[in-house]
Design a binder for these strands. Sequence first.
DNA 1: AGGACAAATGAACCTCGGTTAATTACGGCG
DNA 2: CGCCGTAATTAACCGAGGTTCATTTGTCCT
Lengths: 168, 168
Amino acid sequence: MVKNGRKVALEVGDHVFMQGDSNSNIYFVKSGLLKAYYIRADGKEHIKSFLPEGSIIGSMVALVDGDPCTFSLVANEPTTAIALPYKVLADAAQSDIELANALVGFLGTYGKRKEQREFQLLSLSAEDRYALLVETNPDISDRVSQADLASYVGITPQALSRIKRRLK
Amino acid sequence: MVKNGRKVALEVGDHVFMQGDSNSNIYFVKSGLLKAYYIRADGKEHIKSFLPEGSIIGSMVALVDGDPCTFSLVANEPTTAIALPYKVLADAAQSDIELANALVGFLGTYGKRKEQREFQLLSLSAEDRYALLVETNPDISDRVSQADLASYVGITPQALSRIKRRLK
DNA sequence: AGGACAAATGAACCTCGGTTAATTACGGCG
DNA sequence: CGCCGTAATTAACCGAGGTTCATTTGTCCT
């Protein structure tokens, strides 16, 4: 099924889609690193997640309801990915039990990830979230800028710098 | 399918499950109001979500991986719900295409909700989150205590009191 | 009506992170 | 090597929210 997808090659800074676009594809990241982020009305950016090779991503509301994407997706490194329209997947799943269950697996994993993120944002301090990120994803924290790390944690680069000093 | 579930009746304060329990049921809230919350190591509570009648809830990691529940679920009003083991659902979905697609629908909706919550926690101030809650769920904000509202928004009751005053 | 307990508000003080702006690394690259 | 643009750090100030504790407002109960 995935083999039917369209291959996408991206240079650093290329966007897969922008917040507000109509785009109901699911993307399978083959190599490189994507960055998903929100832009607020006042222009501030907030990083939603990092998507290294092996990740699967799409805007849930765009996939499920066909609404405009709620975030932007950009390449942080030269990246290759496979694009597959969700509708194709969902339609095929109507008659393909195996595919339907694969979809269940994907959605379950996605829900799990978001549940963890919700917990972290709700119950952990910025310092704890940073420490957790470094501990669980040392590779990621090496591959992105301080500013992006800070944005992911939900603070400014300056605050992250302070935290790093505190942690000595 | 849902008819095969076990009926659960709860008084105010009764727990459906506690954080750390093994419980891989999906619950369909028929009437009343449930409250999902995390307990941190230091004893602080943080409300994950309110589940009024019509909601569907379960601990995603418990459902998908069989891990201990990551949060507690308690009745905030006298509540009736239907409990259905996720495994039963998932297994039945292996051979029932319609059910599999219903499951896809549930998981998609769940992912959407969590995506929105992530956005709010990451990009909105406490004041904005409170205003948004009152605007989109006026019923909920009437049915729960100030302390619970504050906990959901991610602040203390005192801070919420200040915010309300600011908003006059 | 009065009493008792919980919920909500208010005030004083403190801390963390935001803001702004200056300063110091750290690459390319001519 | 020195220049320049970007990233990272540091500092000074400010404001939102946390903490603690006191006070007020409810609400239920008899």
